[in-house]
Amino acid sequence: MLVNYEYYKIFYYVAKYQNFTRAAVELDNNQPNISRSVKNLENTLGCVLFSRTSRGVKLTPEGETLYSHIVPAILQIEAGEKELLMQKELKSGIVSIGTTETALSEVLLPVLDMFHKKFPDIRIRINNSTTPAAMNALKSGSVDFSVVTSPVEYDDEFEIVNIKDFDDVPVCGKEMAFLKEKIIGLGELKEHPLISLSKGSSAYDFYSKIFAENGLKYAPDTEVATADLILPLVKNNLGIGFLPKNLVKSDLESGEIFKLNLKEKISSRQICIAENKNVSLGVAASELKNMLLDYSHRFGN
């Protein structure tokens, strides 16, 4: 049985207030239209829903039965409409982001700070992992979009936008500080302990390719899950690591670690926004993505 939803909504308000005129005011309608809609609903259902009283109307037994089912439905619909309005006005909602440690520190953190100050009621969920894991999260639909570091392997269903270039530098701790006085090649670098992101990460793939192009095998002595673990290992003299220049700037200036002068040139890498072309972003996620793009235009390269 197909019944116009408006009929049920009008029925709900007439039953709630037990008065056609008050229901009309609540619905910004007029009393004749309200009466006509109730009559149409009664005709469609084949029963009388209201009986008149001296003060208005009251539900018949059939009306009571219908009302018991209509109340939760109307309340759920109105709650949904209110929630959508709040999300549209960015007063409610959740944004889920997949990201890497480098992308988080280089771009995402300052933008999240601005976003949170502007929209304090929006909740943010961050899945911090490697680029492949962040892309898998995007593919599974568990995040709205991902902010990752190159190289990025992706299918046609994804759209990738580069938002910032960054450079890695090889760094070491104090016990290997003697290496900073010379220009060192990858071959000699390989003779010392290397610290790297784990196999399967974009950074591991990137340096495997660089070493291979120079006839060398990339075989780090220590592998870690996220980039933030490399720096403390370098500081504690466990080996040499490649880290984003901006990330280690203060540690280089304080003399806690040292930059090595590499003979071979290491090409820049990129921080990228990745999203699924087949999935529309919500209002809050779209706003955050646009803030990231705007930030990259102003401060990206």
Score class of each variant (00 low, 15 high):
L233S: 01
P132T: 07
V25F: 08
A285G: 05
R269A: 02
E175K: 13
T99A: 02
A134M: 06
L233D: 00
S201M: 00
L197K: 01
I273N: 01
I94V: 07
E6G: 13
T53K: 10
D144H: 15
S196E: 08
R298H: 07
V3S: 03
A137V: 13
I273M: 04
A23V: 05
A212M: 07
M291D: 10
I273R: 03
V279N: 07
T21N: 15
R298C: 08
S37G: 06
V14M: 13
E83Q: 01
C172L: 07
N276G: 04
C272E: 03
K277C: 05
V25C: 08
A79T: 00
L112I: 08
R269Q: 05
E175A: 02
V148Q: 04
V111F: 09
L41K: 07
P151A: 15
K180E: 13
G200I: 08
A219Y: 04
E81N: 01
Q270V: 02
Q76N: 00
N29S: 14
K245Y: 11
N29G: 08
A79N: 00
H69F: 02
E213M: 02
L27M: 11
F50I: 02
R36E: 10
N4E: 15
V283D: 10
L85I: 02
S196D: 04
V57L: 13
L293Q: 13
S35R: 10
S268A: 08
K235A: 01
G300K: 09
T100W: 05
L243G: 04
R36G: 12
Y207S: 00
A137E: 12
E213V: 00
T226M: 01
S51R: 14
R36Y: 14
M176G: 07
A79W: 03
I124Y: 10
I230G: 02
G215L: 06
I210E: 01
L59Y: 12
Y295N: 03
E106G: 00
V25W: 10
D168P: 01
I10R: 14
E101K: 04
V57Y: 12
P72Q: 05
S54Q: 13
I273W: 06
K259W: 03
V152N: 10
T99I: 04
A284I: 06
L179D: 11
P132F: 06
F299C: 11
N33W: 10
G185S: 14
V224D: 02
F258N: 04
S150V: 10
E253K: 06
N128V: 14
N127V: 15
A73S: 00
I230P: 01
Q76M: 00
G282M: 07
V38R: 04
L292N: 03
I257Y: 07
S254Q: 09
I160G: 05
I70W: 05
Y204L: 03
D165G: 05
G187M: 09
G46C: 04
K139P: 10
